[in-house]
Design a protein around this nucleic acid. Structure first.
Length: 785
DNA sequence: CTCCTCTCGCCAAGGCCTCT
DNA sequence: AGAGGCCTTGGCGAGAGGAG
């Protein structure tokens, strides 16, 4: 919302036509790399500060460098001084007035100085009429009173992964154990599968790379050794190099357009493929003179690779692993929907293959045929139609979709595969979908209740058939853990930062990446009026961090660094101290300002959330080591939480946090202050390290109008069913050969067409179609036992 | 109960490799 | 380049089963 501050009595007769950068300027203001040409007369007449400066300076055109103010506020002030009005957002008013006060800008600064304590708002009063008679903006909304207690669980059953069970008292972690050892082992197996994200992703990664590297390459087991070696050479040799080259040129944005145009020519004649020039060196490196056939094949692969990658760039915006780019102002993550109203709405649901990540309409058939050599598939096949087999297949399908969804969320574009496709009227965002921690199915938050209750919740967890808040809290926590971080949080980061109190604790929070992610994550998931949850969580995390820093006398530790097993003892000690289970030596310090008896429980849960964030970061960075460490920390914390099971609120002397101080702490080197947030980030809300790339890609996206990719890789088939007459004709003319299992030849068909006895039943079919038909019939016959 | 989506078997139609 | 062979995939429709 923008407001206009208007200085109605401004001497418009003289100044209205004077603009910044007009001729006859006689001074410069410099701020944040920008230089403004200004008029001394105007500035000194409007600002006591500049009046003083210009009085003191004897230079002809003074160059004034303004520190400690953001260039946009300089612009606001200049606009105000020159034009008598300024358009700013509500939030910026306070800072503008501060700046105006500092620079003694008449009207604006007096407005601040002359405020009356009794006035309802300092902005709404009638200011000194001779200077300023009318402020046309309304007073900013009062900031909500901070609610110091945690918010209650939503009564409507709306699940929010981030405000779940904190004040509901402890839940019994034990209740998640299933009495059936078979199921327990299966769940453990699933859970360990979940934990094995990286190996799976890695294998997928290589296969995706495989797909990217060569056009429609088959997997190794499907191609001959010779071709395999060719592809392998290409893949291992310059595949990566090629990708880097393209990535660079893409981010530069220059060559992209040239090469895109050139791919268009490619369709008409491959000889014109000019993109090849830039790759000829690469391909020559890997082709040999002695084997021209091989050389030409490799050349062909290079061309296809290049072409494919360009197509990929064009359709998806960013193709590379590890560069997570979400485009500013638009979400490219879509949800799978059922097409309606076009008459042709039977599109079978598409699932993604767990092994090769390809979209499939019949996923089990695909897995059974293509990946039959995978041990998991062999095992499932052996189950032969049992209920277990059904479950295993379902889980495999969910896993495939889960990893696909993770890719989509990390890349910031693509289509999320959710439990049931939405109809076009459903207003749900991709943010509303989270995976079931047990079966990995993506469900909307509200559906997760029902799903978990009937499908995935162990029976012992809910003796009366109803999940409790504790169960769901656990469920949602697990869900957020396995999902990790969903993307960049630019807008929310900005909001979070600008709303935090300004003190040492907040300062720590802002400079810590994990806490910022946590805050953004929470912010995206709570209602506007629940901001206190976000603020409190961030500040509590910062307190934990601060405690560990002081305890170890390492003042540049980050939360990411301390959330590893070797620091576990210190983190739990921090929880103890902060919740007053242990006495702190600094009773009046920032650390000691909390005293709720249930705080230990709250803090422990908060640390779990931070761990979810860290795990997400580790997964995103494909950092195997951090992932394992984080999971191990989670396990330790779970044990700690299990200790709360006996906590009944009365026994406050419970010795529930047994701290093992013997464990070894890895001392990290002090590397200087955390540099996560800088001024730019505060105001632009951008992640510092992604910024350049982000801007380039945003600009490119505008130009090439990137749209979400269509998953369909194969052109739709034009299927013409055989009529009974045609079927009869096939058997009439070729029945004998089909019985023998002998393929027909083209000459057989030609002979038929020219035969005098042929009645023309198959005139609508080409010889190839007839061949297919006969072939399929033979295949079918062979399949029958 | 009705409405709707999903799954799976069947069919038609490729894709791609090898051979000639 | 065409033919033959093997393997795989999308569309369609029936029936299963979930949601309300």
């Amino acid at each position: 919302m923008h407001e206009t501050i208007k200085w109605t009595n401004h001497s418009t007769s003289i100044l209205q036509n004077v603009k910044i950068k007009a001729p006859y300027t006689d001074a410069y203001l410099a701020c944040s790399g920008k230089v403004y040409e200004v008029h001394r007369m105007i500035l000194s007449s409007c600002s006591g500060y500049f009046q003083e400066i210009f009085k003191q300076t004897s230079t002809e055109t003074p160059f004034i460098i303004m520190a400690n103010i953001k260039s946009k506020f300089v612009e606001y002030l200049l606009s105000y001084m020159y034009k008598g009005e300024v358009n700013i957002s509500e939030k910026e008013i306070e800072e503008l007035l501060d700046a105006a006060e500092y620079f003694k800008v008449k009207g604006l600064s007096q407005a601040v100085l002359n405020k009356e304590p009794s006035s309802q708002s300092k902005y709404s009063r009638d200011f000194n009429a001779s200077v300023i008679s009318d402020l046309t903006f309304s007073p900013p909304r009062k900031k909500k009173k901070t609610n110091e207690s945690f918010p209650s669980y939503s009564k409507k059953g709306q699940i929010n992964a981030y405000e779940p069970y904190l004040h509901q008292g402890p839940f019994n972690y034990q209740t998640f154990q299933h009495p059936d050892p078979h199921i327990i082992s299966k769940v453990q197996n699933y859970e360990s599968n979940m934990n094995l994200t990286i190996p799976n992703v890695n294998s997928m990664h290589s296969q995706i790379l495989w797909k990217e590297g060569g056009a429609d390459m088959k997997r190794p087991d499907q191609m001959s050794a010779q071709v395999w070696n060719q592809h392998k050479t290409v893949q291992e040799g310059f595949g990566a190099e090629l990708m880097n080259t393209l990535a660079n040129s893409y981010s530069k944005g220059q060559e992209y357009h040239q090469t895109t145009d050139k791919t268009a020519e490619l369709k008409e004649g491959e000889e014109n493929f000019s993109g090849e020039d830039s790759l000829s060196d690469l391909s020559e490196m890997y082709s040999s003179d002695e084997d021209p056939v091989m050389a030409s094949k490799i050349k062909k692969i290079v061309r296809k690779t290049y072409k494919n990658m360009l197509t990929k760039f064009k359709t998806q915006g960013s193709g590379f692993k590890g560069t997570s780019i979400s485009l500013q102002g638009r979400t490219l993550i879509t949800l799978s929907t059922v097409s309606k109203g076009d008459g042709r709405r039977h599109n079978a649901r598409v699932n993604y293959c767990y092994f090769c990540n390809s979209p499939q309409t019949q996923i089990w058939r695909h897995i059974k045929n293509v990946h039959k050599s995978e041990p998991q598939v062999t095992r499932i096949c052996e189950l032969k139609g049992s209920n277990d087999q059904k479950q295993e297949i379902e889980f495999l399908r969910n896993m495939g979709n889960f990893y696909h969804n993770k890719e989509v969320l990390n890349a910031g574009n693509g289509e999320l595969k959710v439990y049931r496709r939405l109809d076009n009227n459903t207003q749900l965002s991709f943010k509303d979908f989270i995976p079931c921690p047990k079966c990995l199915l993506f469900l909307s938050r509200s559906d997760l209740w029902r799903h978990y209750k009937y499908k995935c919740m162990p029976q012992s967890a809910a003796p009366n058939g109803r999940p409790t808040v504790g169960h769901l809290g656990h469920l949602l926590f697990m869900s957020s853990v396995i999902l990790g971080i969903q993307g960049n949080f630019k807008k929310s980061e900005k909001k979070v930062i600008t709303r935090l109190k300004t003190d040492e604790i907040s300062d720590i929070a802002i400079k810590d990446e994990v806490i910022m992610h946590l805050g953004s994550n929470l912010f995206e998931n709570v209602r506007e009026d629940r901001f206190s949850v976000v603020e409190q969580s961030m500040r509590l995390s910062a307190r934990i961090l601060l405690y560990v820093r002081r305890r170890l006398n390492q003042h540049y530790l980050t939360l990411y660094q301390i959330l590893r097993p070797s620091y576990f003892a210190y983190v739990s000690e921090a929880i103890d101290v902060l919740s007053r289970y242990l006495q702190t030596e600094e009773p009046n310090s920032l650390l000691a300002s909390l005293s709720s008896p249930e705080l230990a429980y709250q803090l422990t849960n908060l640390v779990r959330k931070c761990l979810a964030v860290k795990l997400g970061m580790a997964l995103k960075a494909h950092n195997e080591e951090d992932k394992i460490e984080t999971n191990s920390f989670v396990n330790s914390l779970d044990k700690l939480l299990a200790g709360f099971a006996s906590f009944n609120g009365e026994d406050k002397n419970l010795n529930m946090l047994e701290v093992d101080m013997e464990s070894e702490v890895v001392i990290v080197e002090d590397t200087g202050p955390a540099d996560y947030v800088n001024e730019d980030m505060m105001w632009e809300g951008n992640r510092v390290f992604d910024r350049e790339l982000h801007e380039t890609v945003s600009a490119l996206a505008e130009e090439v109008s990137i749209s979400p990719p269509n998953a369909r890789s194969v052109a739709a088939l034009k299927r013409v069913p055989y009529t009974p007459t045609e079927n009869e004709a096939i058997f009439k003319y070729f029945g004998e050969l089909i019985d023998k299992g002998q393929m027909i030849k083209k000459e057989d068909i030609d002979r038929l067409f020219t035969s005098p006895t042929y009645a023309g039943e198959l005139n609508n079919r080409s010889w190839k179609n007839i061949k297919y038909k006969v072939h399929n019939l033979i295949q079918k016959k062979n399949k029958q036992p």
